[in-house]
Simulated scan of single mutants.
Amino acid sequence: MTDSAKPRARSTDKRRRLTAAAARVLHEQGVERTTLADIAREADVPVGNVYYYFKTKDELVLAALSEHSAHLDEFTGRLEELPDPRARLKALVEAWVDQREVAARHGCPTGTLAVELDKRADGTLDTEAGTVIRRLLDWAAHQFRALGLPDPDDLALTLVSGYQGMSLLANALRDPDIMTREGARLLRWLDSLRAPGERA
């Protein structure tokens, strides 16, 4: 690596750490309670350096949403390695249930952020949060379509609504077992779906 490449690599690493830290801290504390200093501390970056990469907290929120989107793409990419669309959908639900402790403490990372951003007066960042959720809906609809099921977009909406509902209730009641029970219900529902003419 050349001398000029080293500072660039360090700069990229700091930005990446700040982005990942923003995603974690905003999920745990929410937008209003989070300061740039909180994110700098989590990223182990001097707070003065944050302004070099992100001029405002809104820019950090956008970076966090990009992190959620990248994580979703990476995760659904791994699910695509499974040979069957139903298995992919079930693995998605199982991954949600595996995160039940986090959901009980903080809710869904993107869902809680979308709700909080919607309450703000400027109303610009909430659209970005909705875009991440739309990516999940589109991916799920593609799986239902591959199964030959009618109304794949509606089925995707039912699935993602089930997740958002169970994560919200687990968070509100501080009860991770809600995720376990409702996740099992979603798995049974996925097993029950049959394309026209398909035998159980």
Rank of each mutant, 00 (worst) to 15 (best):
R8W: 05
A9D: 11
S11C: 14
K14E: 11
R16S: 10
R17C: 09
T19K: 02
A21E: 09
A21R: 08
A23L: 02
R24W: 02
V25I: 13
L26I: 06
H27W: 15
H27I: 05
E28W: 04
Q29M: 11
V31D: 07
A40W: 03
D44A: 14
V45T: 00
V47W: 11
V47H: 08
T56F: 04
D58S: 12
L60Y: 08
L60A: 08
E67V: 02
D73Y: 08
G77L: 12
E80S: 14
E81H: 10
R86H: 03
K90Q: 14
W96L: 13
D98L: 11
H106Y: 15
G107S: 01
C108K: 07
L113N: 00
A114P: 05
V115A: 15
V115H: 14
D122P: 09
G123M: 09
G130S: 00
I133M: 07
I133V: 06
L136W: 13
A140K: 03
A141K: 01
H142E: 15
R145I: 05
L147I: 05
A156N: 00
T158H: 14
L159A: 03
V160E: 06
S161T: 13
G162E: 05
M166F: 08
L173M: 15
I178Y: 03
A184D: 12
R188L: 15
R188G: 15
P196R: 06
